[in-house]
Computed example of a mutant assay.
Amino acid sequence: MERLQEIISTILTDDQPTVLATIVHVDGSAYRKEGAWMLLKEDDTRLGVISGGCLESDLHNRAQGLFNTGKTDVFRYDLSAEDDLGWGRGAGCNGVVTVMVRAIDATFRKALTFLNDQLQAKQPVYYMQSMKDFNMYSFISRSGAKFGEVNDETRPELDTATPFQNIAGQVTVCDETVYRQVVWPKPNLYIIGAGADARPLARVAGNVGYAVHLLDWRESLCNELYFPTAESFQLGDLEKLIGNIPFSPLDSVIVMTHDFQQDIKLVQSLCSFQLLYLGVLGSKKRMKRLYGGEVPDWIHSPIGLSIGADGPEEIAVSIVAELIAVRRGKMT
């Protein structure tokens, strides 16, 4: 999912012929699961991966016959045999991977434009694709906005779905096989405090797919020079800044101002929002003083997984690992 919106944006801004590969079914184990996307362009560039390198070359060759055709095809790769040299040296993944490969035409570009608009509005979108008639597909947002003609009353309730849960795969609807996927918006990470230790954190988080936003009162630190991959910068009184942000349950926030008095006010304000992740830099003792008592389990402090990290770079890795674990539902 980490490059999905980048793939969509590339399709919508690049007019050259492109092919979209999507894993629609996995039987057994595989490097990527259902819902993984990869873009193949006519100039031989690729975006995203659907395997550890086993399938990309073959899909690239198959894409050559699909560019500019508007056609869709499905390919099944059996990677289960360790002595099967069909993919080079024997993949040994013990899985069978089914990939749908679609040449992007004008109609599907319109569908992706709709999808992109909903994702930009922080709306998760339910994607449904007939596996019998590839021209039959629909995108339906949580608010009920829709593109396409396929109806599915069995679609999951997006209001109650666990944020960023991987909902993807094939199901049977009215005796027909249908591929379904929930496409989640790009996760936002708000870093409050633009000190030197925030720089590797912003970089690592951006590399794994977060839209990183910096908030600080110091223009000399909170800028593109130190945070070249950040999507936005907000300068000024921090309490006022966070009060103007429409936080959602899909958003993550990390407080790292190194200012105790300021952190007290920020934590009090942020606790009024429903967030996916709230982390505060510092020790447990410091956090108890900030919070004024026993700290709730849903506030992460100290932040980061306990991996013995030392220094800004390693600590950044531990923090992003914790962000991923929370987003994947591996910890609260």
Rank of each mutant, 00 (worst) to 15 (best):
G65P: 08
G65R: 06
L66A: 06
F67P: 10
N68T: 01
G70K: 01
G70V: 02
K71H: 07
K71V: 01
D73S: 15
D78V: 02
S80I: 03
E82N: 12
E82L: 04
E82F: 13
D83P: 06
D84T: 04
L85K: 02
G86D: 10
G86R: 07
G86T: 09
G86M: 04
G86Q: 10
W87D: 01
G88N: 07
R89A: 13
R89E: 13
G90E: 07
G90W: 03
A91P: 01
G92N: 08
C93Q: 08
C93K: 09
C93A: 08
N94L: 10
N94Q: 14
N94V: 03
N94R: 15
G95I: 05
G95K: 09
G95N: 03
A103G: 05
D105F: 02
T107V: 10
F108K: 05
R109K: 14
A111N: 00
L112E: 06
L112R: 07
T113P: 00
N116V: 04
N116S: 13
Q118V: 10
L119C: 08
Q120M: 13
Q123S: 15
Q123T: 08
P124L: 06
V125C: 05
Y126I: 00
Y126H: 05
Y127I: 03
Y127W: 13
Q129H: 15
M131K: 09
M131Y: 00
K132F: 03
F134Q: 00
N135G: 09
M136F: 03
Y137S: 08
Y137Q: 08
I140A: 01
I140F: 05
I140Y: 01
S141Y: 07
R142F: 06
R142E: 14
R142N: 13
A145K: 14
K146M: 14
F147I: 03
G148D: 04
E149G: 09
E149N: 11
V150Q: 05
N151D: 15
N151G: 09
D152C: 07
E153M: 12
E153A: 15
E153Y: 12
T154V: 14
R155L: 13
P156Q: 09
P156M: 05
E157H: 09
L158D: 04
L158N: 03
L158I: 00
T160K: 14
N166M: 12
I167D: 09
T172V: 15
D175R: 13
E176Q: 14
E176F: 00
T177N: 13
V178A: 12
Y179A: 10
V182D: 06
V182S: 11
V183E: 02
W184I: 05
W184T: 04
P185T: 03
P187K: 01
N188P: 07
Y190C: 04
G195P: 00
A196K: 06
D197F: 02
D197E: 13
R199T: 01
